[in-house]
């Protein structure tokens, strides 16, 4: 058995890598969106400045225990999702704690952080928080359905619930990627991906013009710092998950960066040219198109 301390050290190193990658990715996205808007935008290190700023602010307000725990659950969800996925296929130190049933666990972790956050934000007592929670949970729940269907189709295709084995099955060239071998599941998964990334038209939970920033309205200082850190982990982890499931995974860090960046750009570019859905329209869209696509993907591998 491999020494657990070495594995922990590798996990810490990979967390450090992915946290910085997530922060820089957020900075690059800010810059790209600004260019689409016709602005110069902030420097790419702006997320670091924001994080340091909120971490340096002291809090004098408490809304109760759950209010404190919300950001902790949120961050735990992001880190948990990341730590049970292989980051780079074949790498010793970027394997994390992936195991044979990790696909089920990561689906759970995608939802876990948001549930914790919902409990914490709801205790803040601000009316925009429950409104945002209601919107966010409804959105996540409905986008998880096509994602779960796509995952079932992929698992059925490869006969495994291990992400590492799914990535292994896609090695050997572009034509082995699930994007090519299982395009219907990939389509359902990518539509779910748009909802899970929560950029426009699916940014219902924050909706600055409607319920200004929703759940985190009352969060400030270190609480907000936790959430910003989670954003780096969670966004990167989701990108890695989708890369592993549908786009052949990555065999080295440059490929990882390239693929996850391009994946992120799908969500970003859809976001900058679309207004926000209303909640009922978003739910209707997910039930009508991605879910039906996901069902077709499952049926293809069932019969």
């Amino acid at each position: 058995m491999e020494n657990i301390w070495i594995k922990l050290f590798y996990a810490l190193m990979s967390m450090l890598l992915i946290f910085n990658y997530g922060m820089l990715l957020a900075g690059v996205v800010l810059k790209i969106v600004a260019r689409v808007h016709g602005r110069f935008g902030p420097p790419v290190w702006q997320p670091y400045v924001n994080l340091l700023k909120v971490l340096s602010v002291r809090s004098a307000i408490s809304h109760g225990i759950m209010f404190y725990l919300g950001p902790v659950f949120r961050l735990a969800g992001g880190i948990g999702l990341f730590l049970f996925m292989p980051v780079v296929f074949g790498s010793v130190w970027l394997q994390n704690f992936s195991f044979s049933g990790d696909l089920l666990l990561v689906i759970y972790f995608i939802f876990f952080g948001q549930l914790g956050m919902a409990l914490g934000a709801a205790e803040s007592g601000h009316p925009y928080s429950p409104m945002g929670i209601m919107r966010g949970l409804a959105q996540v729940s409905v986008s998880e359905v096509p994602f779960a269907l796509a995952v079932i189709a992929i698992a059925a295709q490869h006969g495994t619930m291990s992400i590492t084995e799914i990535v292994a099955a896609q090695q050997g060239g572009f034509l082995h990627w699930n994007m090519v071998t299982n395009p219907v599941a990939t389509l359902a998964g990518m539509m779910a991906f748009l909802g899970m990334m929560m950029n426009s038209p699916f940014d219902l939970h924050l909706a600055p013009q409607e319920i200004p920033v929703g759940p985190p309205t009352e969060y400030h200082s270190t609480f907000l710092g936790f959430m910003q850190a989670n954003r780096a982990f969670f966004a990167s982890a989701k990108l890695i998950l989708f890369m592993n499931l549908f786009f052949g995974g990555a065999t080295n860090i440059p490929i990882l960066v390239l693929k996850t960046f391009l994946l992120y750009m799908v969500s970003v570019f859809v976001g900058v040219v679309n207004p926000r859905f209303k909640l009922e329209d978003s739910l209707r869209w997910f039930i009508k198109i991605p879910t039906v696509t996901g069902i077709i993907a499952v049926l293809i591998y069932t019969f």
Partner: peptide
């Protein structure tokens, strides 16, 4: 107002 900030910036 409907979340399409790009047009607002332009």
């Amino acid at each position: 107002s409907f979340g399409l900030g790009t047009i607002g910036q332009w």
